[in-house]
Simulated scan of single mutants.
Amino acid sequence: MRIRGVLFDAGGVLTRPVGGRWNPRYDFETIVLAHHPGLRPELFAPAFAVGQRVLDAGPGTVERARYHRAILAALGIERPSAALLWELEAPAAGPVIEAYPDVRPALEQLRERGIGMSVVSDNWAGLEAVFAGLGIAGFFAGFVISEVLGCRKPDPRMYAEGSRLLALEPAQCLFVDDDPVLVAAARDLGYRGVTLDRGAAVTGDGVVTGLAQVVRLVVHDRSPF
């Protein structure tokens, strides 16, 4: 079967974080220190590690508020004020993520060729609005978000929903992710798959370094299984 659709991961494939860090977002320390100016800066890194363990612990994506509370507790803030929690949950003053420079050209080329596209991301609800702010949401038939679906990749339901949004069979879809384990899981389910490693020195063995290569794979139908 020819490739008729592409399932994209979001972070590391289509977008990157402003400030160089995914979680928590770049203004976390500034907000917390405004409420608790006596906190020592060196406490944040180990507290972030605690938060990451909370994110990694369950089969689904935990609520953002629970994640923030775990970090705050590790900082010694057991009873955070409602104002602090609200600020951490509120939209940031500026962009939190940005699209890689090669994203729009690649999406435009795929759309011109009639290729359907969806986003399959381990993320919190609201990603579609973020993509709308970046001006790229309209390229996608839909978004599969782990917090909404209640599971994370490599749960088969994540992939299945991505191809369902395109009304395609797995064998008709290419899955693109920056995690080779998740790409391997997609292949096991019958999808074609490539790992996008933007920092790789060389390509090959199912690894690409940019979206232009993904477009070429789709156009020439040479993606690996």
Rank of each mutant, 00 (worst) to 15 (best):
A92S: 14
P24V: 07
R164D: 06
E42T: 10
K153F: 00
F44E: 08
L7P: 01
G38A: 13
I77K: 12
A73R: 15
V215Y: 05
E78V: 13
S118F: 05
A106F: 00
K153R: 12
V202A: 14
V119N: 02
A70G: 08
A73S: 14
F8V: 02
A160S: 12
L88A: 06
A65C: 04
E87S: 12
A82T: 05
Q172D: 15
A212Y: 03
V54E: 08
P80Y: 09
V54P: 07
G116W: 11
T61Q: 15
L43G: 08
V202I: 08
R2Y: 09
R21N: 08
V183Q: 06
A82D: 15
G76Q: 13
A171P: 00
G11Y: 13
R4Q: 14
A57V: 12
R198H: 11
L174V: 00
V18E: 04
P156S: 01
A82W: 07
Y67G: 01
P180V: 01
L14N: 01
R104C: 03
E147H: 04
R111T: 05
F225V: 10
L72P: 02
D56Q: 11
K153E: 01
V218R: 02
T61I: 07
S223R: 04
V62K: 11
A99W: 03
V181N: 11
L107Q: 02
P91S: 02
S146R: 07
F140Y: 09
T30K: 14
D178Y: 01
G116F: 11
